[in-house]
Design a protein around this nucleic acid. Structure first.
Lengths: 345, 345
DNA sequence: ATGAAAGCGCTAACAG
DNA sequence: CTGTTAGCGCTTTCAT
């Protein structure tokens, strides 16, 4: 076999990638045959199949997904809008990866960063022909999506927003916080504060759950909400605020695990002991909370299950054509570890 | 929705996406004209231009990147292989995003997760026709890339591996650790341990830097390396190991900031004070280290600059056809904060 | 300044 | 079981 001109002019970045025709030519079959072998369809005989696979391997053939997509009108990709800085998002995305893989789809990551806001990220995912969008954050509310993603299934994962037309998969955050309050009250606490997450997604619900639970225990007048965020820094700031007060609460329910850890660390540095001097509850049961030395009492969200439900919701729309919005709410549950104890009287 | 005129059965999702032909038809011009307007090329008159833009907007037209790529033979995408769980990677990726955007390229994220190893991730990026690869991790060494990415420019960012043909952009880790040792020695320490990152990328260099610096200070016989990792958990384990010893070192240089924080927190919980009882140095100067309540003495790597150099290296290969490997090494520098002090007694 | 035609790499539909 | 044909949505080249 003669050397083609292509293989001859091999340069940095210049080497042409082998195409399906190249593989076909090498084996002496037609393109469609190669296509079928590579996609694992049956039809081609075992002999051809082997030859094709060998040839593809030898040539270093890699399928061109763009061309495939163009022809098939299906990208089999789900777009995910998320924040890499948030560990819980990362955890969800990892689960999303395994879910979609098991169902023959793929994930296209659209990371929100300081330089890329939701509007931009969503447009990009749409241009890549994602078939559905899974949002882990709703940065500028629901607005910027309205036009762009009008025709696309959109699932909001763990970020409830008032949009009746959209699928929402989430944990019952109010209930989760209520469990935390119940736990603390049982331990004997009554001065229970809440460090919230301001206007971030989910914060409203957690705040409401806190208020409701406090009132139910007759502690309505002890309600104390400290403005925070889903970050360690916010927890640290909250610690400072607490230290500046005349009277410290005996327990704090934080916005999430990161916030809790920030709070605890700052307190430790000022020799305020957790849980001896103050009890702290996190939220998410992220990897962080489970670390042996953190051992945080926290409200567990089942990330794997949330991811699964979100993927199911998206694929259901795609494959069965469902068009009514579906809301799935999982029950969270409290995981008691080492950061909560009875108040020292 | 009801059945549309042209084709009866639609995929779930309903309305067919408008194509360039639709926009062209609406305005009454040809496809190429629309194409040029949308790409901002000059040629079309100002009148047509406006009409096209309006029509595109009204129809909710979004370009199909796959089709564009197929025709242009350029994806203008750089693939990034990284680990979402590592904060420093996240930081680098955020910088990469702004770098490539400024140069007219885009990023395709390939996240390594427990279910997706490097081999798979790289294959995926290649199938998406990325023009170059930026690796922030070399999970299974350099091997699995050999065949797949033979013809693709590959830049290793902050993960030096012995591959002479590849571009490498990194900090001089050995030097960074040396600065940390120097600092501690100046403070009066001599029992300085190192928690390393085992076989993770970069660990070898940092270990070597530690050894060299210790010897240079005549502390060759005090060399003490504790096996660790780039995680808070590893730091915590190291703390446990230290506590089990007869004599504790007075200072520890950790694998990275996460590891340092894990170490510090575990020590704090056992009422070992940092820096009073033991000094701790991190590595990376990540967001974590800069948090006011952490205020970690650490070795700063210039993430923004590293990202920039990596993108430059990749684009240089693509655009100028450079083919010799290029190694760029930045000088890190020590940032002294609150976790180091003179040894007590 | 604009249009017509060709074709990128692949797969669906049909022929043989 | 395998080959032929056509065309996805876009951009390039060339003609007008």
């Amino acid at each position: 076999m003669t050397i083609t001109s292509r293989e001859g002019s091999r340069q940095a970045g210049g080497a042409k990638r082998p195409t399906m025709s190249d593989v076909a030519a090498r084996v002496g079959v037609s393109r469609p045959t190669v296509s079928m072998v590579l996609r694992g369809l049956d039809g081609p005989s075992e002999g051809t199949r082997q030859q094709v696979l060998v040839a593809a391997e030898e040539l270093g053939y890699a399928p061109d997904l763009s061309a495939r997509l163009l022809r098939r009108h299906r990208s089999l990709q789900l777009g995910v809008v998320f924040t890499m800085r948030e560990p819980f998002h990362v955890e969800l995305v990892e689960h999303l990866y395994s879910c979609v893989a098991a169902r023959g789809y793929d994930l296209a990551l659209g990371a929100l960063t300081p330089t890329r806001e939701q509007r931009h990220v969503v447009a990009e995912l749409i241009s890549h022909r994602c078939e559905a969008l899974i949002l882990l954050d709703t940065q500028d509310g629901t607005q910027s999506l309205a036009s762009a993603a009008a025709d696309l299934p959109v699932v909001q994962l763990a970020c409830p927003v008032a949009d009746k037309s959209r699928d929402v998969v989430r944990s019952d955050d109010a209930k989760g916080v209520r469990q935390a309050v119940d736990h603390l009250v049982e331990l004997g606490h009554s001065a229970i504060s809440h460090v919230d997450a301001g206007s971030r997604p989910g914060a409203v619900e957690r705040r409401r759950g806190y208020r409701t639970a406090m009132k139910r225990h007759g502690l309505g007048d002890r309600i104390d909400i400290i403005r925070g965020d889903y970050t360690q820094e916010a927890g640290s700031k909250a610690a400072t605020e607490l230290q500046n007060r005349a009277a410290r609460p005996t327990a704090v329910i934080t916005a999430n695990d990161d916030c809790a850890v920030g709070l605890i660390d700052s307190l430790l540095r000022e020799h305020v002991d957790v849980p001896a001097d103050i009890s702290v509850v996190g939220y998410d049961d992220s990897r962080l909370a489970r670390l042996p030395f953190v051992s945080l009492t926290t409200v567990r969200q089942d990330a794997a299950r949330l991811a699964e439900l979100a993927v199911d919701a998206a694929l259901e729309r795609l494959e069965t054509g469902r068009s009514e919005a579906k809301k799935a709410t999982l029950a969270p549950h409290l995981v008691v570890r080492a950061t909560t104890a009875a108040p020292s009287s």
